[in-house]
Structures are given as structure tokens and as C-alpha cells.
């Protein structure tokens, strides 16, 4: 009973936040909705993670994968867009499941932005990288078996990541979906979209085997 009440209360608060924001920020209501949805969509994943009785080893492992992906983003700063973050997130998800994947993705976004600068883009990066990790865990079996599927997943996540960012910036700037600005933004950032996709494929193919070997070893050695 108490649980249900709490659940209802949370839903109520979410609705109140979104609607009062819509009333207040009439001109930017789409931007408001999208950013609140991005933040709120992460909440259930985080709560689930808090509730589950996870082993400390798993927590440490996620922390390690997050730090590695942040470091990889720092190492590759000279090459804009060319980063192994997505690849590391997907590999973690493939070996340790959707939850670990989501956490690695979302936390990598927050932490790396402590080094690269937070901004309105942080919630979106959190959600998108988190979801890339989540679905990487869902399709883990196929991704492990077929290199082609793995490469396709890399391409797809690059495209999704880039276009989500473009959609948000158009919604924020114009207050509505301005098609010509969206197209221009997509064209202007298409170079990045391609770099994302290509780097994801390269790093996934390059890293999935050797890192997978390490992770498998850790799994059996420490009984994760």
C-alpha cells in the first residue's frame, strides 16, 4: 500500500513539474518537455539500481568502466568526435547486462562533462549513452555472435546520438520544430555523425574481442 502511494506520488510530481513548466515557459515548452523527459527517463533506471542488492564488485567494475571511458574521451580530445566511449559502453553491456550498460553510459556522460563542461546537453548525453548501453545489453547475444550486427549497432548508435543532439538544439533555439534549421544542423553536423559512426565501428571491432577476454576472465575469477 505504502509503495503504491509513493509510486502515485512520484507520478504526480512528474506531471506537475512538466505541466507547470509548460504553463510558465510557453515559448520554450518543447525544449522544457524534452529536457524534463530526458532527466526523468533516467530516474527509474537509477532507482532500480539503488534498490537492487548489487555486489560491491559490480559497483567497482562499473566505476572502472566509467573511468576508462572518460579517460579514453580525454585521450582522444585532439580528434573531435573520434571517441571509444560508445564502444566501451556497448562492450560493458554485452558482458554485464543492460543495467551495467545503462549505468556506464549515463555516468560516463556526467563525469566526462566535469572535464569537458556541463551544459543543457548533459541530460541528453546521459539518456542516449545510457540507452545505447541498455539496448546493447538487450541484444547482447546477437552482438556477441555476429561481427556484422556489432558494426551495425555501432553505426546506428552514432546516428541516433548525433541526431538526438540536433533535435534538441533546434527545439531549444526556435521553440518549435523548424524544419529548415533542423536540416541545416543535420548537414552541418553530418561530418560528426559520420565520425561517430565510423569510430564506433572501428573501436567496437578492435576492442570487443580483447576487452571481452579480460571481462570474461574477471567474471570467472571473481565470480561476478
Amino acid at each position: 500500500m505504502k509503495k503504491r502511494l509513493l509510486f502515485g506520488l512520484v507520478i504526480l510530481i512528474i506531471l506537475v513539474v512538466i505541466f507547470s513548466g509548460m504553463m510558465l515557459f510557453k515559448d520554450k515548452q518543447y525544449a522544457w518537455i524534452s529536457i524534463s523527459v530526458a532527466v526523468l527517463a533516467c530516474v527509474p533506471f537509477f532507482l532500480q539500481f539503488e534498490k537492487r542488492n548489487n555486489d560491491i564488485k559490480k559497483l567497482v567494475l562499473i566505476a572502472v568502466m566509467v573511468s576508462l571511458s572518460v579517460i579514453s574521451r580525454i585521450i582522444f580530445t585532439p580528434l573531435p568526435g573520434f571517441k571509444p566511449v560508445t564502444a566501451l559502453v556497448v562492450i560493458t553491456a554485452m558482458y554485464f547486462g543492460s543495467e551495467a550498460g545503462f549505468m556506464t553510459g549515463a555516468l560516463s556522460a556526467v563525469i566526462s562533462n566535469f572535464y569537458f563542461g556541463q551544459g543543457p546537453w548533459t541530460p541528453f548525453q546521459m539518456l542516449i549513452w545510457g540507452l545505447i548501453g541498455f539496448f546493447g545489453g538487450v541484444f547482447a547475444k546477437r552482438l556477441l555472435e555476429s561481427k556484422f550486427d556489432l558494426a551495425m549497432y555501432g553505426v546506428l548508435s552514432g546516428i541516433v546520438f548525433s541526431s538526438a543532439m540536433d533535435t534538441w538544439s533546434v527545439l531549444w533555439v526556435d521553440g518549435s520544430f523548424n524544419v529548415s534549421r533542423f536540416l541545416t544542423t543535420v548537414i552541418a553536423s553530418s561530418q560528426f555523425m559520420i565520425i561517430y559512426a565510423v569510430s564506433n565501428v572501428i573501436f567496437l571491432l578492435l576492442f570487443s574481442k580483447p576487452i571481452g577476454k579480460f571481462l570474461d576472465r574477471i567474471k570467472t575469477k571473481f565470480q561476478l
Binding site: 559497483l59 572502472v64 573511468s67
Partner: peptide, 23 residues
Amino acid sequence: AIPKLSLVLSMAFRFIPLFKRQL
């Protein structure tokens, strides 16, 4: 509010400089 997550976060904040040095 989020004890486990913030544990992961604080470990990651510690690991990053450590790993950088090791790298």
C-alpha cells in the same frame, strides 16, 4: 539520495587520475 550511485561516481573520480598516471 542515491548512495550506491554516488559511491560509483566517487570511485570513478578517484580512478580517473590514478589511471591517467598508470597510463
